[in-house]
Design a binder for these strands. Structure first.
Length: 131
RNA sequence: GGAGUAGGCGCAGGCGGUUGCGGACGGGGAAUGGCUCUGCCAAACCUGCCAGUCUGAGGAAAGUCCGGGCUCCCGAAAGACCAAACUUGCUGGGUAACGCCCAGUGCGAGCGAUCGUGAGGAAAGUGCCACAGAAACAUACCGCCGAUGGAGUUUCUAGCUAGCAGCGAAAGCUGAUUGCGAAGGCUCACAGGUAAGGGUGCAAGGGUGCGGUAAGAGCGCACCAGCAGCAUCGAGAGGUGCUGGCUCGGUAAACCCCGGUUGGGAGCAAGGUCGAAGGGGCAAGGGUUGGUCUUUUUCCUAGCUCCGUGCAAAGGUACCGCUUGAGGUGUUUGGUAACAAACAUCCCAGAUAGAUAACUGCCCUCUACUUUGCUUCGGUAAUUUGGAGAACAGAACCCGGCUUAUGUCUUGCUCCCCUC
RNA sequence: UGCCGAGUAGACGAAUUGGUAAAGUCACCUGUCUCUGAAACAGGAGUUUGUAGGUUCAAACCCUACCUCGGCAG
């Protein structure tokens, strides 16, 4: 799994991405080709089209407002990443995805996260069809 | 059995399965691009990627309350003195150091085991002690006394004086009366004495008792508290005993004094290395355009989508700092202990949107229920099924402490109740 | 991660060289006025000073530990 790591990537997704929302999570999604306009150096102009097949990158954002305790935040993040791991084969490539966690999500368990993520990704049309 | 108290160099479930994450190690090993093009370089002394082996949170990793190491800036030979700061402060020891730890002393709390202790100086000075109260550190409101001094009193007395009456020869005696009147009595409470009692207050000039006194008072005595001196025990804080003069308010977590300690400041986001693209800044130079004066060479000034050069800033954890350390484990020795020494042995996280996880099986432990056996009917043993394995909590440069949060196991000791 | 600052009625906010039921404004409640409401006037209630200990005769204030909130490096 490829992770979003740089703050610059996060702010780009926040500025330009599509937004989807459930009661416990918010999803921000952006095509990497759109990001390539902002950062033209990463991709030479000749190869900008169909040649690129870099996999989708995923980031999770969870603030101290969700919970003050680092243990709780880390567990939620790990559970979300594990759920996405399970969904990874169905994901389309060339997308940047950011998952934002809401404060109510401290009560959720793994199955709930899995279900909500599946729903959100389908809504954002990042999931590899319903085939 | 219950209640309590002090510890633990005590534990933080175990073994697996599937899918995954960080680091280290040694292997395999591209695409692509460049060039001096049948080979080299970039990264080929192996990057992305691939599989393998090893390894991967805590007792508090937390709070950031102290003390260090380490790094940079300012200052500075070294030492002494002064100043300043710290806010450290019973004694002895431990430690790299500490406001920490150990052992003891005094005081306080508890029936006790034991616990708490910010525990130098108020007899060096200054300040403060509201209200109340006479007075808050020096006095006298009520009260007591009035010994001493003063004033009053003859309707207090002794005594003296004067004339009158009676008796008498006289001296004189008796009686009532006039006046004086003590160093005596009584009255006053004016001066004064007093700090027992009342009242005020957190606090009122050691406490209790007896004597004493005009009334009182360490004024005297006994015991107690406290102070000073001496002796003695102890390494010391202090303990014990004797003697003495009799007594001093509280507050220093108020200023302060004394003693002690100390170069100051910032903190790994310290600090250092490298520093792309595309822009902008400054400097001097060149080029070019315009203006003025002198002159036809240059100079001055203002500008520019111009040119290259130099300087400085800036962007990013890309790399270093970064984990071998006052290190861990074990044994022995010294010490009451904290701890120290010697020997042996081991290398044990290094992330940076931040790794150690998600789901799940068995064992073990605990617990609830079902059934059965025993029963002194309180329970106890086995068994079936279900549930839980938690609580507090996530390394972020590294150590030593403190504080706070919190599940469970276990050891010693104390008090109370019951039974033998 | 490191470093700073602040907590006083429902809201704002004074009292901080310790001194005795902790000012004031808005809001709230009751009444008067009015046909009703507002305004005005009169009266009233509410805070033990973030929490827990300590020093002191006495603590919002001094000391210690904790809790919460905010800020800076960003």
């Amino acid at each position: 799994m490829y992770r979003l790591r740089h703050p610059r990537d996060f702010s780009t997704v926040y500025r330009r991405g599509i937004r989807c929302k459930t009661s416990h999570l918010t999803l921000r999604v952006l095509r990497q080709s759109a990001a390539a306009i902002v950062l033209p150096v990463e991709k030479p102009p000749s190869a900008s089209g169909a040649v690129q097949r870099s996999p989708s990158r995923i980031g999770v954002s969870i603030s101290t407002k969700v919970s003050k305790r680092a243990v709780v935040r880390n567990r939620i993040k790990r559970q979300i990443l594990a759920a996405l791991q399970q969904l990874l084969p169905q994901l389309l490539s060339n997308w940047d995805i950011v998952v934002v966690v809401h404060p109510q999500a401290t009560q959720c368990d793994y199955q709930q996260f899995l279900q909500e993520l599946k729903q959100l990704l389908a809504e954002a049309k990042v999931l590899n069809g319903h085939s």
